[in-house]
């Protein structure tokens, strides 16, 4: 039993509709010549993206953490690299428990290696000490 998964490629503005054939194990089917069953993209980057997207989708996530003693209440944060989609909620749980103290600078590591993702949660906003 195979299933077809349709994706809209986000690599470039072309937004190709890519169809990927998946086997019962959720892996991409391979034809007799060893080519994966990925159709519809106009470039190779699209094929690679589709493979990644089906097998282990990666996402950058953003949130905010509260700041005490700052000129703004919240400092926005994000992962410095994409993390597996399946880890998003675990990472968010760590973000939710975190508060910081001003000053905060863009790029400051707020949480190192959240949920074992081998990424960092970094600040994306400068927050000065409240005057």
């Amino acid at each position: 039993m195979s299933t077809t998964k349709e994706l809209t490629c986000v690599v470039c503005p072309n937004g190709c509709t890519i169809a990927v054939e998946l086997g019962a194990d959720g892996k991409i089917l391979v034809d007799a010549e060893g080519k994966p069953a990925i159709k519809g993209s106009v470039c190779k980057r699209g094929d690679e993206w589709a493979k990644q997207e089906v097998e282990n989708p990666m996402r950058t996530i953003a949130s905010s953490v509260p700041v005490s003693g700052g000129d703004s209440l919240m400092a926005s944060v994000r992962t410095n690299r994409p993390i597996p989609l399946g880890k998003v909620m675990a990472v968010m749980a760590e973000v939710r428990g975190r508060t910081v103290t001003a000053p905060v600078a863009i790029g400051d590591v707020i949480i190192a290696n959240p949920a074992g993702t081998d990424t960092d949660i970094i600040a994306t906003r400068n927050v000065a000490k409240a005057s």
Partner: peptide, 22 residues
Amino acid sequence: CIHDGFGLHRFKEALSGPEYAA
């Protein structure tokens, strides 16, 4: 706009809104 995706054309990087503004 704290999500990422800003600056792909201008800076060839996926920045958040505050970083792009900064």
